[in-house]
Design a protein around this nucleic acid. Structure first.
Lengths: 231, 231
DNA sequence: GATTAAATTTCGAAC
DNA sequence: GTTCGAAGTTTAATC
């Protein structure tokens, strides 16, 4: 990896055409040929970048460019897509190279899968009297997160999201439509459960006759007893 | 901005819980307190990060940590959400600081808005005999990209995407449903236009009686005459 | 390999 | 300030 702080301008041509005016920025050249251009702000997204697989070549600026103050030209190209990124470097303030080696990678937990597992084990968080039929209940267009039965025997399709948005309601609507064709399941009750639900999603759900439940992750986690994980 | 190459392990607790085992990585501390942790691979997304607004503090490792080889501890916290990122540094290989100043920002062109403008000006790319009613035709749930009329007077709702996926078909379906309630427009013909359309989106569109058109961006751009931009 | 859904998404605009 | 859709999205899972 090579890390450079330089005053430069940047041009990109690919999915779109973009230009960065002359300024001082952080350039990160990774071993796979990819390049990131960061400013001292914004979030983790670079101002501009080139994704691997790609190749970086350093070239001499032509006379016109030299007169404009360009001392070095970096050209990064993606062979397949013909995307090209050109960095016109005026001044290099710092230039560091270091071999990082492979990274063991991120170990994470606590995402949607766990939320689904928690809800499946504590259906009372959705409604009283529900019993689990199965998680990831298959349909022609993909599995429903949870299928359950109410105490009166009605089938309940539950879609679980971390953030409930309009797309999730659409997804659940499609599942319900398919499940409703099964005479053993019809009529389906549909529940949209998420840690947070946008107002628009709530409105659409209400319009479609879909119930909304806001989940409390900490409460679900806290209520889980060690024994629950055995089932 | 401070740029450090260090052998470290990282722990994050917030939306999820995550851990990075000991390895050599690039640490970028931006002026707004945010921190990025990059490996020598992957795309532009860091292995781990903390988004602004947040505060970074450097602390002395306790005795246990020191015995484990930790020479420095960085704690980055987000006040509102209580997210916390802790970097346990064992060895610093490089440590650079540089004031970058504000960035003028990216100038870009060629995104969906332009695609919409091009199609509105060249409705023959959709079908022969169409005439523009208006772009961004308003409905209760948001504007339809383009509303046009066929030569026989039928209203045509056109949804334009760069990449046509199932969501776009759902969106267009909702628009058509609403527009169909207007006696001056009914019955609505719906067209889903995109540079690429996924098979599943095509299938759903066909099932809903929505036409699909694959757009050729370069052709649209090339066919545009200077005069067209006046209208 | 293609496709789909999720992301600690981020980013920008409209309301 | 919220909310919502788009992104040169990226990434992981699934077919």
């Amino acid at each position: 990896m090579r890390v450079v702080i330089a005053t430069c301008s940047v041009d990109y041509a690919g999915r779109l055409t973009a230009h960065l005016p002359l300024a001082t920025r952080l350039l990160i050249a990774k071993n796979d040929g990819s390049l990131l251009i960061h400013s001292d702000g914004g979030s983790y997204k670079p101002l501009n970048w080139m994704s691997p697989p790609c190749v970086m070549t350093t070239l001499e600026p032509d006379e016109t460019a030299q007169e404009a103050g360009v001392t070095e030209l970096w050209r990064v190209t993606h062979q397949k897509t013909a995307d090209t990124l050109v960095v016109s470097i005026h001044t290099i303030h710092s230039d560091i190279a270091h071999d990082l080696g492979d990274d063991p990678g991120l170990i994470k937990e606590g995402v949607e899968a766990e939320l689904q597992r928690l809800v499946a084990g504590q259906l009372e968080a959705i409604d009283d009297g529900l019993s689990l039929v199965r998680r990831e209940y298959p349909t022609a267009i993909g599995p429903v997160d949870v299928l359950a039965r109410s105490s009166d025997g009605t089938a309940v399709a539950i879609e679980i999201k971390r953030r409930g948005e309009i797309d999730g309601v659409e997804q659940l609507t499609r599942y319900r439509e398919l499940l409703d064709r099964d005479p053993h399941l019809r009529p389906i009750r549909a529940v949209f459960a998420a840690q947070e639900i946008t107002p628009q999603a709530k409105t659409l759900a209400a319009d479609r006759g879909i119930e909304c439940v806001v989940l409390d992750y900490d409460a679900l986690r806290g209520a889980e007893t060690p024994g629950d994980t055995l089932f």
